[in-house]
Design a protein around this nucleic acid. Structure first.
Lengths: 213, 213
DNA sequence: GTTCCATTTGCTTGCGTCAAGCAAGTATAT
DNA sequence: ATATACTTGCTTGACGCAAGCAAATGGAAC
């Protein structure tokens, strides 16, 4: 085998697609954050990633396909961080960890999270292909919380059982509300911290008192 | 002047535009709810309203202009209902009324509210013209709540003052979270009621206890 | 084990379709 | 008659498809 030429090392097919996928993901994130999904064009994504105007369309099939890919990719990264942060924890401790991780992720703000939530909210309309993915992540978040509550319930008296479904629902809705505030007011660091702290506080109240429905 | 033909009575200019505005508003709402803002075209709005393909574009200038009009119109209706429901009330009573009114509005669901929130969330991205209107409504909502809290503060001891800004922030974020849940899960009536009830409960806790930060 | 060719896969370019937006024209109210 | 409501013709640009080129892969013959 000849030594790899300096300029462009020989690449396998898998390496090629991995490279182009990553570069197009980054390009898409930047464009979505800068101009919104509406004004993000497949042409610009391909060219900003260093390829032709047509590659994004070819690879992802459609604009929706591209957005689907972005949500899936970033969502996966996020879920990994989350599960790592809450590994081994249950009940209130797990919630605290989840909320804190969410807070840290929003502040770190490598743009990916911002594009993720922009697409998330854009999928609020009907018949969006990204909607199913978003709903999946949403449902999983709720399931996690419900599991934590149920675990806590096993250490509680029979007449002090918590409504896992209700608490999980409120947790999910609160996170969404916070994420929206973060999108709408990017510079309100104090407010974003406050909202997370208040969610911790509210969840603590719900989990430490005998509260039913 | 010949007697007005039965089919179409002679109309003043104001009447004409009022009619076409209303019909196009309704058409836009239906299309947004049915297909999402993305797939809603100015052509379809004009034609569904019973006019030519070009009227919506001519009247509102652009697609963003149309959406702006929809958000403004529905938002105005909503604010009227809200101020009517909370007139004369302050503190916790006003919050209860506001939450209950919101809940009733979501359930009544004449599609207008659904289109309104779909556009609301679609404006989460940057540089959306509707964003300013949405932020205005959002800010006003927060101001209202802060005013209610401040009114309540006047009847409280100096060392028991509530953080109006923080409570208003949480109120606003919670409503957004609930609205998103309503959009994402239209048929989950129980969950939507529960979220409103929980917000009432949380606000009651915050307002009746000496809670700081 | 090396060389050569068939095939697959990654990527680009050209074209048809359709919505947005503008400008010029027609119809209706004042 | 004149201003205003509305329509129609046209341009621009994005999307998405299909045809084509280039690079990588798998095997067979040597």
């Amino acid at each position: 085998m000849p030594p790899a030429p300096a300029g462009r090392p020989r690449q396998t097919h898998a390496e090629r697609t991995d490279r182009s996928d990553r570069r197009m993901l980054d390009a898409a994130v930047e464009l979505i954050v800068a101009h919104g999904p509406e004004k993000t064009t497949l042409k610009d994504v391909g060219e900003r990633a260093g390829y032709s105007r047509g590659l994004a369309g070819y690879r992802f099939g459609s604009k929706q396909g591209l957005f689907e890919f972005v949500v899936r990719s970033v969502g996966e990264q996020w879920l990994q961080q989350l599960t790592a942060a809450t590994a081994g924890k249950t009940g209130l401790a797990a919630m605290h960890a989840a909320i804190h991780t969410h807070y840290r992720f929003l502040l770190a703000d490598g743009q990916h999270m911002r594009a993720f939530y922009i697409l998330w909210f854009s999928s609020a309309g009907p018949e969006s292909d990204t909607k199913n993915i978003v709903l999946g992540i949403d449902a999983r978040r709720r399931d996690d919380v419900a599991t934590w509550v149920n675990a806590a319930n096993r250490t509680r008296a029979a007449d002090q059982q918590l409504d896992a479904h209700a608490i999980a629902g409120q947790f999910g809705a609160s996170i969404i509300g916070i994420a929206y505030h973060w999108l709408a007011h990017p510079d309100d660091h104090a407010g974003i911290k406050q909202l997370h702290d208040q969610l911790v506080h509210t969840m603590t109240l719900y989990m430490t008192q005998g509260h039913s429905a």
